[in-house]
């Protein structure tokens, strides 16, 4: 527990900043929804005629004028992309920062096994992801109530669950990479997340590269699909979780036998 507490204390500013930024953007999106609601009914047809661009964001399949449609497209992107950046960044720095900042020598000359270090650091990463998601969910519910809309519980919880699973997958994969790095890997985390996000957009635009959806976790996090299917794509999620497990196994395997410089 000592290391978990230490990691949470060390990461508190980043958690506050990312959670705050996502929550504020979410609130802004939801607060402008009533005003846009009437106009959106007309604009939705326009989106439908925008071809690939609208398809990339799923705007051709959902009514932008309904709360679920608006939430899936606008808020889904904010939570999905923002949360993914946060998760990948804390995952990639969890183990690598010790060598980057020269603190590995301090930490690993205490009577704590490497496996224990990996376990507690992983737990701290996951706890931060959980805390961020809970706060964002609560803020979202309060904002929906504040604008006088009925909470679409099922759709909302499904979308938030998908985003949460996406973050878990990215955090775990980046955590695995972190064990191999000696310097910070922020560039890798940001690059990986961006590439995966765009892969999903491309998959939305063309049937030929639809299989990208099974590679990128943004595929099962797509709000439009979640709402239209009325559930999560279990097969894609299972594949994603397999990547997460592989990331975690790689972290243990690598870090437990690594030379610390």
């Amino acid at each position: 527990m000592t290391l978990i507490k230490h990691e949470l204390r060390q990461g508190r500013i980043s958690l506050v900043v990312w959670t705050g930024a996502i929550a504020v953007l979410l609130v802004i999106c939801l607060l402008v929804f009533p005003e846009m609601k009437g106009e959106m009914k007309a604009i939705s047809h326009l989106f439908g005629a925008m071809g690939s661009f609208a398809a990339a964001f799923g705007m051709d399949r959902l009514n932008f004028g309904t709360l679920t449609g608006f939430y899936a497209i606008e808020c889904g992107n904010v939570i999905g992309l923002g949360g993914a950046f946060f998760a990948s960044l804390i995952g990639i720095s969890a183990l690598a920062k010790e060598e980057r900042d020269g603190t590995a020598e301090f930490l690993l000359t205490h009577p704590v096994s490497r496996a224990h270090v990996v376990t507690e650091k992983l737990a701290a990463v996951m706890l931060q992801v959980i805390v961020m998601n809970l706060i964002v969910l609560v803020v979202s519910l309060l904002s929906i109530c504040a604008i006088g809309e009925t909470v679409p519980w099922k759709e909302l919880l499904l979308m938030h669950s998908a985003c949460f699973l996406l973050q878990i997958e990215l955090a775990a994969v980046c955590f695995g990479m972190s064990a191999f790095l000696r310097r910070g890997g922020f560039g890798i985390a940001l690059g990986l997340t961006t590439v995966l996000y765009f892969l999903n957009l491309i998959a939305n635009m063309s049937e030929k590269v639809k299989f990208f959806k099974y590679i990128t976790p943004f595929g099962y996090c797509e709000g439009v699909d979640v709402i239209m299917n009325g559930g999560l794509d279990i097969r894609s999620i299972a594949t994603g979780m397999l990547f997460a497990v592989l990331g975690i196994v790689a972290a243990y395997k690598m870090y437990c036998g690594k030379d610390i410089r």
Binding site: T2, H6, Q10, D101, T103, E105, F106, T109, P111
Partner: peptide, 23 residues
């Protein structure tokens, strides 16, 4: 160690406590 590095943002008393807690 020849060159001691600690976690940024911590006070000396926190570092000493962290070291003791880890033990």
């Amino acid at each position: 160690p020849s060159e001691a590095m600690f976690y940024p943002g911590m006070r000396v008393r926190d570092v000493l406590k962290l070291s003791a807690d880890l033990r």
